[in-house]
Design a protein around this nucleic acid. Structure first.
Ligand SMILES: [Mn+2]
Ligand SMILES: [Mn+2]
Ligand SMILES: [Zn+2]
Ligand SMILES: [Zn+2]
Lengths: 144, 144
DNA sequence: ATAATAATGCAAATCATTTGCAAGAAGCCA
DNA sequence: TGGCTTCTTGCAAATGATTTGCATTATTAT
């Protein structure tokens, strides 16, 4: 069944916690499920609101704490697009960058191996090794 | 003397203010001079400290306010590298992107026409027109 | 079950940045 | 130069996002 590029769900996120020796609490389970189901890039508050619908006892602090621990374990990705608060996404698929629609706020994902390669080249020329990078395009739909 | 790519100084920044109908105050003059002389990417506090040496009466609020107005006029560039507070730089030269040394915090500038072109291409393919972008490489010096 | 320990909710604390407001300059014209 | 109008400033208080201390609750291994 597995084709090597699976769409991991909440189960995989739970496994990450378990392997790290962390506890799987009701609130974490809820947050992870939302994160895995989402497919979008919600900020802490949005995540909190969605989680609260499932479990009204959840707190915003827990959302933040959970994001922090998952980020440390590499299970999620944190983005800080211009202006707004941090936004998160389940880090399952392959790496990609983002284009933000300035009019609608919509986040479009894309990936360019050529750009990835060029970045490596540039870093090497400068005598560096890339640990991470951030590429964000801000634009508007062109009407033509 | 001018070769079309001049290293504009504080004078040019003052011109920006004047043309925008804004007043040239002692504190603004001080901040602009520092920004033009710097060549680096100081944050508001660093800017404030340097300015305070010239004019002890200056306030951090004024630094922030000045950065905001200069940014609106396109005279400076504001960067928000991972983690830290916003950092500023005089926007005279041509566009460039940054590589941040994770060990030293040093900011290295670079520019790649190929990457710039690729970004345009990608945006076009997605049906967008780029208004601005942000490309940051985070890495460490490779010892070899 | 129970004990040991990690996680939670809440309120208060931080950090960076912004803002209200009264006092102090700048720019402009007489 | 003086006066007037309007813009800026400094200061303190407000914001917004995120973190943290602490007492309480929940998990997990025994
Ligand atoms: Mn994404
Ligand atoms: Mn720069
Ligand atoms: Zn990338
Ligand atoms: Zn660029």
């Amino acid at each position: 069944m597995s084709d090597g590029r699976e769409q991991s769900g909440a189960g995989e996120l739970e496994a990450v916690l378990k392997e790290a020796g962390l506890r799987i609490t009701r609130q974490r389970r809820t947050i992870l499920a939302i994160l895995a189901a989402g497919g979008d890039h919600p900020d802490a508050l949005a995540l909190y609101r969605r989680a609260a619908r499932e479990d009204p006892s959840i707190s915003l602090s827990t959302v933040y704490r959970t994001m922090k621990v998952l980020e440390e374990k590499g299970a999620i990705q944190r983005h800080t697009f211009e202006g707004g608060p941090a936004r998160f996404e389940h880090a399952d698929g392959q790496h990609h960058d983002h284009l933000i629609d300035l009019d609608t706020g919509e986040v479009v994902e894309f990936r360019s191996d050529r750009i990835e390669k060029l970045q490596e080249e540039i870093a090497r020329e400068l005598g560096y090794e890339i640990v991470s990078h951030r590429l964000e395009l801000y634009g508007r739909r062109r009407r033509d």
